[in-house]
């Protein structure tokens, strides 16, 4: 088996007296969807923010592509190829899809924006992810549905040759059909060779797309197993009580 893309060992993080992450270990492999599950307050968001450079870890080691790395800022994370798609989408309604995907990293010819180049790249990216729900990449984002917006936000992360994409509750506000579209895209990302971390509360989503499930309980990683080795009920048990009878660790 190939070496994991991202490996966390013994991560600790406290906010004042609150010990949020306790000796957390996590392994994320390229080409796989790793679902990160846990109840509210289990430390999922904190863990993601530590990886993304928003928070600094107190102690522990981060290995990226086998090398120890230190992520001090979101910029460091972006340079490593880590992109985080947050729950509240960071899209501008008044700009179109291409403009949003290249926001802050526009392609230019001298001083002038290179629109044809950006449009071609955006179209190619969406095609590479088999996205068919948007009719024109020149549509303003305000005219898109929630699912389409989520798809644009995720595709934006892919555009930058990211190796690791972390999705924070991407289907939380979506209807059934749109959820299916977004999950299809999540699966496509992994099939394209990216490592995907999916944070979700929805067990159906988790079992639909993930290859592995990592469960956090009160700041501790209580299990990291293949999705095929665990049942729905066992995951719920892990989330709520931190342990599960009969689960081979």
């Amino acid at each position: 088996m190939q070496a994991p893309l991202l490996e966390l060992r013994g991560i600790n993080k406290s906010f004042g007296p609150v010990h949020v992450l306790r000796d957390v270990a996590l392994t994320v492999r390229a080409g796989e969807v790793t679902a990160l599950v846990g109840d509210n307050g289990a430390g999922k968001s904190t863990l993601v923010k530590c990886v993304g450079g928003t928070h600094q870890i107190d102690s522990g080691e981060v290995f990226y592509e086998g090398n120890p790395v230190q992520v001090h800022s979101p910029r460091d994370a972006a340079q490593l190829g880590i992109e985080i798609v947050y729950q509240d989408l960071a899209l501008c309604d008044n700009l179109d899809i291409v403009q949003n995907m290249f926001l802050g990293r526009e392609r230019k010819r001298g001083w002038v924006l290179d629109e044809p180049e950006m449009e071609a790249l955006a179209t190619a990216t969406l095609a590479g992810l088999s996205v068919k729900t948007v009719s024109s990449v020149r549509q303003p984002v305000s005219s898109l549905s929630g699912g389409q917006r989520q798809i644009v936000a995720i595709s934006k992360a892919v555009l930058w040759n990211s190796k690791l994409v972390i999705l924070d509750e991407p289907t939380a506000a979506l209807g059934v059909a749109q959820t299916a579209q977004v999950l299809e895209l999540v699966r496509q990302l992994a099939d394209n060779g990216l490592a995907v971390v999916l944070i979700s509360h929805n067990m159906n989503d988790v079992f639909a797309v993930s290859d592995r499930i990592a469960a956090l309980y009160l700041g501790q990683m209580v299990a990291q197993v293949k999705t095929t080795d665990i049942t729905h009920a066992q995951v719920v048990e892990l989330i709520t009580s931190g342990r599960s009878e009969g689960l081979a660790q």
């Binding site: 960071a90 501008c92 700009l95 926001l103 802050g104 924006l113």
Partner: peptide, 23 residues
Amino acid sequence: RTAYGRHLYAVGGNREAARRAGI
């Protein structure tokens, strides 16, 4: 036609998104 203008629209449209995009 310039990135400056694009960023101006972005800040006007969604300041938080613009900030996250590194503007």
